[in-house]
Design a binder for these strands. Structure first.
Lengths: 341, 341
DNA sequence: GGTGCTTGCTAAATCGGATGAATCCATGAT
DNA sequence: ATCATGGATTCATCCGATTTAGCAAGCACC
């Protein structure tokens, strides 16, 4: 069931069949129709491996992430896959597990499969690995990397603006004693958020209390532990912001165990808007990172279709995406009584 | 940078290089060494597309799931990917979104990419689609399908045994008035659980109250709604079992809103043990479905390596996996006072 | 010395499409 | 009538590996 069979049935050459399928050259309407009928009748679809070999394009796009088990990623993966499939492309997913060694293995897999582009959302990537892609003219886009990377496009989330929105929200609710549960500070994307927090406090003329800033690990357990440290410090903020939702969920657990009510006693605000945050009790106020948009931007930046538009669009090398404040039930007015305690 | 370059450098033919790489025939030690040096020196790795075309094996395994956004799946996907990569294979993920039309598109993608095997974990698959794989001798394994499928292996979770364990646990805690929040009853894998529940009650000689059994949708919102219906019915069970953890989480939300304490007023038990269930308040007692084992069994069933062992192992057509009860804080002794209320 | 069997390797066909160059054909211009 | 034009199609080659058939050398045996 190959292209030759189709060609014979339609009484044309294989080249014509190929051209009808790909629309790469003008074929007369009747011939095209004959070919299409033959394809239909034989239930033929081309072997992508053969196509990739002949054309150099594999129709595969790599997506390197840290860990699909982190609830932030599935929606991103799904969106990325959706758009890819819409364009007749497939995706190859790879988890690095935050491990540089595995990152190297991932890159090699991508190269072997001859991906047409790679989107990367995980900590840092060593230069020599990136060069592999550059040398082969494989477009690369980093998602979520604050710094600009040579030889690659970036689409970053404007974390600072997000933190600012959150802080404005808290300030408008009369909060002044605000804590921050950061992500692992070794990650620059986590540092951006922590720094933005400090900046916001300064802008509002509030002195920051070092006890109120604790490092977590962007996971539930780290959030719980970080919150516990604040609780143990003796002095309580009226609100805490977490570097991501998992951290916030952990923090809420610690607060709950300490017998504190959210939001009456203390407000909590997260970051990311993972699906589950709508279902915690109380539902978590957070910053929505538009993952669909993130994925679409990344894919379009990589994809070079046959039409001009795509190519034109792909020229923009730096994209920024704005998070959006989602107000739910975990934040409320700072009660005077409490804040004076 | 292709096999010819390596062959020239090692002063052998491309066939010899191929054999050294794949170990498909005897090559003298010195020649092999020369070839390996050349490969090293040129930093060569074979083009998988070319290899797939020549050998018929793509080294790609398909994994068709409903929706990676459902927290049940990421761990499965990750495990599957891990084992595949360990064996030098890659995976192609496809979401059906519970939509038969998309299912067909997924199958076609798999066929075009010439996958070497397909693992399927989603509702049902039409026969004519399955036949596509059978005709091409592509092994297929269904995960989570209760019924045996002709022309495919299966690895199913013993849901009935899981429900039984949960019920035994509840009975041992003196619960008699037990509710059940099912999944969508159109799904046979959900029906299995609902039926097992009824059977368990009967075995323990307890009459089931129809008001206590409500249909959900295996998602948080459906669980919340189903629990609400029980609450609205006026009569309260002392414990509820949910068909999966998301349903249980929704139910806990509804109970929380109704001012009921878990587990003091009512016990809740889930199914699946998604990661988050350890972090709900209270932490959810549930049945762990060993996803890693599920993924491994599925992959091994599909993979046919070069050695005999793999082939032998792949002969077993039906596998069953046992869930395991994980007792956390959401279940406790039924209080006399309450249960008599 | 011939026969048969290994071992170690090569040349060439093959997989299934993509694609640049060449050809064919109809039309219109000169 | 001749030729240029350009649209439609075919031819031949290529992509980069795998794999089959086959050859040559070495060895044992009678």
């Amino acid at each position: 069931m190959n292209i030759t069979a189709v060609a014979q049935r339609a009484r044309v050459s294989t080249a014509t069949v190929s051209r009808v399928i790909n629309g790469t050259a003008i074929v007369s309407a009747e011939t095209a129709e004959r070919v299409r009928e033959a394809i239909e009748a034989l239930n033929f679809y081309p072997d992508i491996n053969a196509r990739a070999l002949g054309s150099g394009r594999s129709g595969l796009y790599g997506l390197i992430i840290s860990d699909i088990t982190n609830p932030y990623f599935p929606e991103l993966v799904k969106s990325f896959e959706d758009i890819a499939v819409e364009h007749g492309q497939d995706i190859l997913i790879a988890n690095t597990d935050y491990d540089p060694k595995r990152m190297e293995a991932c890159v090699i897999r991508m190269l072997q499969r001859k991906v047409d582009g790679v989107a990367i959302m995980t900590s840092e990537m060593e230069d020599h690995l990136l060069r592999n892609f550059n040398n082969r003219q494989i477009p690369v886009i980093f998602m979520d990397t604050p710094k600009t990377v040579r030889g690659a496009s970036t689409v970053r989330v404007d974390y600072a603006a997000g933190v600012q929105q959150a802080m404005d929200h808290l300030f408008s609710l009369n909060h002044r004693r605000i804590g921050f549960l950061s992500g692992p500070l070794a990650l620059s994307s986590a540092r951006v958020r922590a720094d933005a927090f400090t900046d916001c406090l300064r802008e509002h003329g509030v002195a920051s209390d070092p006890r109120f800033v604790q490092e977590g690990d962007h996971r539930v357990e780290g959030g719980r532990a970080a919150m516990q440290r604040i609780l143990d410090s003796g002095k309580l903020p009226t609100a805490v912001m977490a570097s991501n939702d998992l951290t916030a969920i952990g923090a809420m657990g610690a607060l709950h165990d300490a017998g504190l009510r959210i939001p009456e006693d203390i407000s909590v605000i997260g970051f990311d808007d993972i699906e589950l945050s709508a279902y915690t009790r109380p539902a978590l106020t957070t910053l929505q990172v538009p993952r669909r948009e993130l994925a679409e931007t990344a894919f379009r930046s990589l994809y070079r279709g046959r039409n001009e538009e795509d190519v034109k669009r792909s020229l923009k090398r730096e994209h920024v995406i704005q998070p959006k404040l989602i107000i739910r039930q975990s934040t409320a007015l700072a009660s005077k009584a409490r804040s004076a305690k």
